[in-house]
Design a protein around this nucleic acid. Structure first.
Lengths: 261, 261
DNA sequence: CTGCCGCTTTGATCCATGTCAATACGATAT
DNA sequence: ATATCGTATTGACATGGATCAAAGCGGCAG
């Protein structure tokens, strides 16, 4: 809601200056795909040196976003994909009657914007949940280049396909799982994604509110809160606000495999 | 379950011979993309004559499936996409604990199999709900050709993107809608898809059971049945088994826009 | 410090949908 | 016809999660 650019709650690890000039030295250096640490997650996996150079020239612009800023909004013309470099995003859809739903959370190395390809218009909103940075990938040029570079083409197709499979998993969750199973699945998924980015598998900081988690999982925020409390009572996790420690990941997994009914 | 090839219930409009030899004359004629009536829905939209010819040579094989036969199964290696020529399919996922969910219904002109691109393995099952026929599109060759034909490349990207958007809509449905809204959305979607294929917007035959509808919508079959009965009482539809007549589509739409709460 | 604001937790109650069970229906086989 | 089988409808009841409401907590501004 707050679009003022002044974060209501400051995040420790992602401080940005309040005004124009960039103080963090790294941010001013032009870092291209060829040097990007997100290699394997992103579109550049398996490309040769020369191919990477071409991709570098395509992925020119960067864009910084403050917490709560929109990367794009539903209805805006689609022009580019975005690769998350740093930070954390959510995508959501708003119905006319006011109901809305979070359709995903995206972190470093993940691609945003593919919803717009089919209609040339974005179908959802993408919002930074903390100060973030993305690589802008003009889509026409990506198609152009992926006609030249087979590996790039295939990477892109893989990214889209994996997104389809992710969505199937989410449908499964929304269609068949109870509240606690949903939250367990969510926590395990978060843990796995933090882990694959080199962070601790057992301890992490959630960037989203209980309401956003609930919206994503098809639950009300109170239900999410209760499930957190329950998991804490059971000794599966330790909760302190948005800070989560997984004490018994195996226990959570068991919850998924052996539903109460 | 019945893989015997003998349909348990025969569908009127899609009779196939019980044994080998093909009696229907058309079926033996090689119909290529260039003559296919599904043009606009499929990958061939907007291609030049020469380009269509190339696509024709790629989409060589056809495959016929009887009711209840699998087009592919979760876990099988991914090799090709399939374009539905005639008939009706469902895709579903089965969890280890026995729970399963229908993730989609596909009709003529729609593409199946994209879930397998990312991992080289199919992530769901595709089952014919009536005797059906698909075009087999070997994926490696499709990538090859879409590097040569820009329009084909773009069509393919659009198809995948639209699938992502469809999934978002389904998440919205599963995450925020009540039972009757879900069924209303389902019926309106079916009507729209039949309509765009030249069938009656107001009268159609559902190929799936109440249980399959329920699985797709995240509901139990009893709830689906009750919602059908309720809609009939309200005068929105006339139901006779799987035969549906929409008497008041506007009424159903209103249900969606103005939810009870 | 004090007050405000957004977020979270917790409790009490309600209701939509799930569950369980009986019956009906339509198609096919005998 | 009669039996059978899968599917669909309907009723009675149970329950998980939503709703409504009240504190609690932590960060920030003044």
């Amino acid at each position: 809601m707050d679009q003022s650019g002044r974060p209501a709650e400051r995040e420790r690890e992602t401080e940005l200056p309040n005004k124009s000039v960039v103080p963090i030295s790294l941010a001013s250096v032009k870092l291209a795909c060829s040097q990007c640490s997100l290699h394997e997650l992103c579109l550049s996996e398996g490309l040769s040196k020369e191919e990477l150079a071409k991709l570098d020239s395509l992925v020119g612009a960067r864009r910084k976003l403050r917490r709560q800023q929109n990367l794009y909004r539903a209805g805006e013309p689609f022009e580019a994909l975005y690769a998350v470099r740093t930070g954390f995003f959510k995508t959501d859809i708003l119905l006319e009657d006011g109901r809305d739903q979070v359709t995903g959370f995206q972190m470093a190395g993940e691609i945003l914007g593919m919803d717009g390809i089919g209609t040339e218009v974005h179908s959802c909103n993408a919002v930074a949940l903390e100060d973030s940075e993305v690589c802008v990938i003009p889509f026409a040029q990506l198609e152009q280049l992926s006609r030249e570079i087979q590996a790039l083409q295939h990477n892109f197709h893989k990214v889209m396909s994996r997104e389809l499979v992710r969505d199937q998993g989410l449908m499964m969750l929304l269609g068949t799982m109870r509240a606690e199973e949903r939250l367990a699945a969510f926590l395990l998924n978060m843990s796995q994604r933090f882990t694959s980015r080199g962070y601790s598998p057992a301890e992490f900081h959630l960037r989203m509110t209980r309401e956003e988690i609930g919206s994503y999982l098809g639950l009300k925020l109170e239900t999410v809160s209760r499930a957190f409390s329950r998991f804490q009572e059971e000794g599966y996790i330790a909760v302190q606000q948005k800070h989560i420690r997984l004490l018994d990941a195996a226990g959570l997994k068991k919850l998924l495999k052996h539903p109460p009914r």
